[in-house]
């Protein structure tokens, strides 16, 4: 089935219902940039399908409120989109734009695209959920623990914000691998910020006197420490340094405190 130009308008309904395949959705978003009537139609459809949610409204568990309101304390809202927002171009120091009307339509379309790119970045949603759950626990812990841990918590909360920024970045990509023994690990990487987060799920705690340590390993075998990995069933940690595309992120068991070079075989190696 090709979506040729005369036919593409009919996809507005399926698009508003999130029923298109990712490639079709991208194609339709390209069409939306130039078709005002489809943009209007999609907007009106979204208001209509939103009403369908009334029919399935269900009281949310109280703990959801607690965890949501805890988690937001560790996440900074993004700044507004400033018109004339070319990627990699320096941001104009003045927030005042005089060409607002001519910019309005492209800004709308690029916003749609940004949203869809974010959707595509969630190719491995399970990993982001693990990371989000970790963040929620970290943030909730921040409220529950005693003030004597304040300093420690401040750094934990800052870390949570960094982790969150990476996993929610529009260009985040996720690659995962099996961990020897049990569990899985994934690296979520944002090319634009150069940052990466290691997420683990179901990995057993390091034995006494040992710690997990992450490494960036280049094709010639050079390993650079990317920091220690906290112990726990579910963890998310911002790796120190910037892995290049094609590098391998490996995790080894090292003596407590970490090593300057890996001393054991990696339990998992993930090419990012």
């Amino acid at each position: 089935m090709t979506s040729d130009a005369p036919d593409i308008h009919t996809l507005s309904g399926a698009y508003a219902l999130d029923a298109l395949d990712p490639t079709e959705a991208t194609a339709f978003e390209g069409h939306l940039e130039s078709c005002e009537s489809c943009r209007d139609e999609v907007r009106s459809f979204r208001d209509a399908v939103g009403a369908l949610a009334d029919d399935v409204a269900t009281p949310a568990p109280d703990r959801l409120r607690t965890s949501v309101l805890s988690a937001i304390t560790a996440v900074r809202p993004l700044p507004p989109v400033v018109p004339v927002d070319a990627p990699s171009a320096p941001v104009a120091p003045s927030g005042v734009t005089t060409s607002a009307s001519s910019e309005a339509a492209p800004a709308l379309a690029s916003e749609e695209l940004a949203t869809r790119r974010a959707t595509k970045a969630r190719r491995a949603p399970a990993w982001l959920l693990v990371a989000a759950a970790v963040l929620a626990v970290v943030a909730a812990g921040g409220l529950w623990r005693s003030v004597s841990l304040q300093q420690q918590l401040t750094s934990v909360t800052a870390m949570a914000a960094d982790v969150s920024a990476v996993i929610t970045s529009p260009d985040a990509t996720t690659v995962s691998g099996e961990v020897a023994g049990s569990g899985r690990a994934a690296v979520v990487r944002s090319a634009s910020s150069g940052k990466a987060v290691l997420v683990t799920d179901g990995v057993p705690a390091a034995p006494a006197g040992k710690t997990y340590q992450a490494w960036f390993i280049t094709s010639d075998g050079t390993a650079t420490s990317a920091g220690l990995v906290p112990s726990g069933d579910h963890t998310a940690v911002l790796l120190s340094g910037s892995p290049r595309s094609g590098a391998v992120v490996g995790v080894t068991l090292e003596p407590a405190g970490g090593s300057s070079q890996p001393t054991t075989k990696p339990v998992v190696a993930i090419m990012v």
């Binding site: 907007r43 988690a71 993004l78 974010a118 759950a133 929620a136 929610t168």
Partner: peptide
């Protein structure tokens, strides 16, 4: 619950990006 939590975090984070012209 996980989906709802994830969505609320995104809504919080994207709150400045909402535009009334989009619905």
């Amino acid at each position: 619950e996980e989906v709802a939590q994830e969505a609320y975090l995104e809504i919080w984070r994207q709150s400045a990006r909402y535009d009334t012209s989009r619905g």
